[in-house]
Nucleic acid binder design. Structure first.
Lengths: 164, 164
DNA sequence: TTGCAATAGTTGACATATAAACTAAATGGC
DNA sequence: GCCATTTAGTTTATATGTCAACTATTGCAA
C-alpha cells in the first residue's frame, strides 16, 4: 500500500471548490505534523515554538490571555502549556504590579537560547520549502490565504443552523 | 473568542515566503476550528466526519490501519476514535474471515443517517466559502497546494513518508 | 516444523485542544 | 462605600494526537 497521499483521494465530490479547500486543510495538517517533528529535538511542539516567538518579538510581555488571543489558543489550554514550559525552564510568570489577577510572561535566558538555536534552521527550512514558488505565485498565495481567512472568520458564526 | 487575527501579526520576518507559509498554516487552523464547530451538533469532531466520509465512499470496508493511512491518523489514535464512535452507535467493527488480527469498519444505519444529515449543509458551506474565488484562482490554489504538499513530504525525510 | 519477522490492533504516558464551571480580583454604577 | 459585572486565570471533563511498548496473529523460510 503506497503511503503517497493526496487530499483528493479522501473524498471526491468532483468539485474543484471542495478540492481546493481540502488542499489547504490537508496542507495545514502536513505542515503541523512536519513542524512538530522539526522542533521535537528541543521543544515538545510547534505551539511552544510559536509561543516563544511571540514572547521574543513582543515589545511588552504579554499576559496569558493576550498570548491565547494572539495564537488562537484557548486560555485553559494556555494554562497547561505555560505550566509545562515553565517547568522546563523556558519561560517565567511575573507578577504584575497593580493587578493581582494576571501575569506577564517572559522568556528565560535558557528559553531564549533554545529559541535562537532553532530559529535559523527554521527559517532556512521555510525558505527551502517555499523555493518551489515564483515570486508571483507567493504573492498570489498570500492574497488567496488572506481572503480565505477573511471569508472563514466572517461566514462562520453557527453554520449548521442558520441557512440564509 | 477570536479577535480579528492575521497570521502576519504573529511573527514577521518581513519575508513573503514565510508569510505565505504562515498563511496556509493559519488558514488550516481556522478551517479546523470552524469545521469542529460546524459538526459539533452531531459529531464530536471534524475527524469523525472525515472517517465517516471515507467509510461511506469506500468500495470495500477499510481496516483500522487503512483508515489511519488514508486520513494520516496514527493507529493508536484510531483505536480510541473508533471506540468512541462505536459506543455512539455510528459504526461497527466486523470480524474478518481468515484474519483474526483485524476488523472491517462499517457505518451503521444510524451513522449513515447522521452523515447524510450533515453532508449537504457541509457542501453548501464549502461552496459558499469558496465562492470568493474565481475559477482560475481555484485552479491556481489547487496547483499550489498540490505542489506544496509534494515539497513537504519530500523535504522531510523523517516525517510522514518513509522511504521503502 | 519450528522459529522469527512482519502486521493489526491495544495500551499507557504524555501533549495539545475545547467548553463549562469555578475562584479571585478589579471595575463601574449607584 | 456597596454590589453587580467583568476580567484573568485555574480546574475538570473529555477529545484528539503521537510515540513506544505490548499482545496476538500471520507469513515466511531455514
Amino acid at each position: 500500500m503506497a503511503k503517497k497521499q493526496c487530499h483528493s483521494e479522501l473524498v471526491t465530490f468532483e468539485d474543484r471548490d471542495h478540492e481546493a479547500l481540502m488542499g489547504v486543510w490537508w496542507t495545514g495538517v502536513l505542515l503541523k505534523k512536519g513542524a512538530n517533528r522539526f522542533f521535537s529535538e528541543f521543544l515538545s511542539s510547534e505551539v511552544q515554538f510559536n509561543i516563544m516567538m511571540v514572547l521574543k518579538h513582543s515589545k511588552k510581555s504579554p499576559t496569558q490571555n493576550e498570548l491565547g488571543e494572539r495564537l488562537l489558543v484557548d486560555k485553559s489550554n494556555i494554562t497547561g502549556l505555560l505550566d509545562r514550559m515553565e517547568a522546563a525552564g523556558l519561560l517565567k510568570r511575573l507578577k504584575v504590579a497593580g493587578d493581582r489577577r494576571c501575569y506577564h510572561i517572559e522568556l528565560t535566558r535558557k528559553g531564549l537560547k533554545i529559541l535562537e538555536k532553532v530559529e535559523e534552521p527554521y527559517r532556512n527550512h521555510v525558505k527551502k520549502l517555499m523555493s518551489i514558488f515564483t515570486e508571483k505565485e507567493i504573492n498570489n498565495l498570500n492574497r488567496y490565504m488572506a481572503r480565505l481567512q477573511g471569508a472563514i472568520t466572517k461566514e462562520e458564526p453557527n453554520a449548521l443552523e442558520d441557512k440564509e
